Simulated assay, not measured.
Amino acid sequence: MTLPPFVSPTDPAAGRADLFLRYLDYYRESALAKASALPEDALRSSLLPSGWTPLELLKHLRYVELRWIEWGFEGTAVPEPWGDRRDDRWYVAPTETVDEVAAELRAQGAHTRAVVEGHDLAAVGAPGPRWDGAPPATLERVLFHLLQEYARHVGHLDIVAELSGGPTGE
């Protein structure tokens, strides 16, 4: 497993948007590297009482970006914003492969990058159902939320990978 280089606080950045994007890229690729290093049975089974699997977590991360960037900030009508869920839990169809889920997550990341590069961080999201009646957030707030979501879930994946005999740490 080869992880991307960690984004050091002392690495020069072109600005806050660049910093957000580099951290999101790091965490996205870290999650993909950790999950991809696991055997198929460990990707699709759970060692936790909550029951989620590493492959489900990857799909969830793709939908998190979709919900917050496309459905939320951009206000795009998304046919299935909760397509990562079924029966009130994360879901991956038996026919979905890790390569397909990884490609969708990377494509979503590319979309996020394009949105961030095309907007000021102070831009306010479009009104829409994502906000559930609250005023839309700025792009910076959305990115901060995405970053904490990724960091938290990569930590979860560290634990599951360790329990499965897979790669751990940074």
Rank of each mutant, 00 (worst) to 15 (best):
103 A>K: 12
80 E>A: 14
95 T>L: 02
33 A>K: 13
106 R>I: 07
74 E>H: 06
77 A>T: 11
22 R>G: 11
66 L>K: 08
69 I>D: 00
41 D>G: 04
86 R>W: 05
45 S>F: 03
125 G>Q: 04
28 R>L: 00
109 G>N: 05
31 A>M: 11
93 A>K: 02
36 S>E: 15
53 T>C: 10
77 A>Y: 06
51 G>V: 12
74 E>M: 13
56 E>C: 11
37 A>T: 02
124 V>S: 05
48 L>S: 13
94 P>M: 07
32 L>M: 06
34 K>A: 09
98 V>I: 12
22 R>D: 10
69 I>Q: 00
44 R>T: 08
107 A>K: 11
60 H>D: 10
126 A>G: 01
95 T>Q: 14
120 D>T: 08
116 V>G: 02
107 A>N: 08
101 V>Q: 07
97 T>W: 08
64 V>T: 12
87 D>F: 05
59 K>F: 00
82 W>I: 10
47 L>V: 15
40 E>D: 15
109 G>R: 06
46 S>A: 12
103 A>D: 13
100 E>G: 12
60 H>R: 01
41 D>Q: 15
37 A>P: 09
111 H>R: 15
82 W>P: 05
119 H>D: 03
64 V>S: 13
21 L>W: 09
43 L>N: 04
37 A>N: 06
92 V>N: 04
59 K>E: 03
87 D>T: 07
113 R>T: 14
81 P>V: 02
22 R>A: 12
95 T>A: 15
85 R>E: 14
79 P>H: 01
86 R>L: 13
21 L>P: 02
73 F>T: 04
30 S>D: 13
57 L>Y: 10
53 T>K: 10
95 T>W: 09
24 L>F: 08
66 L>N: 08
35 A>T: 14
24 L>S: 11
23 Y>E: 12
34 K>I: 05
30 S>K: 11
76 T>A: 14
22 R>E: 13
72 G>K: 03
27 Y>F: 12
122 A>Q: 10
76 T>V: 15
74 E>S: 11
23 Y>W: 09
37 A>V: 04
36 S>V: 01
64 V>W: 04
81 P>D: 03
27 Y>K: 01
22 R>Q: 09
95 T>F: 03
25 D>W: 08
77 A>K: 12
93 A>D: 14
124 V>G: 05
105 L>P: 03
102 A>W: 02
97 T>H: 07
125 G>M: 01
97 T>E: 10
31 A>E: 07
73 F>Q: 01
87 D>I: 01
43 L>K: 15
42 A>P: 02
118 G>N: 08
41 D>I: 11
70 E>T: 10
126 A>I: 01
40 E>N: 07
28 R>A: 02
91 Y>T: 00
69 I>V: 14
90 W>H: 12
84 D>Y: 07
115 V>K: 12
26 Y>K: 09
108 Q>R: 10
112 T>F: 01
86 R>Y: 09
111 H>Y: 11
47 L>M: 13
91 Y>V: 06
27 Y>I: 04
46 S>T: 07
29 E>D: 15
71 W>H: 13
117 E>L: 12
87 D>M: 03
118 G>W: 06
119 H>Q: 08
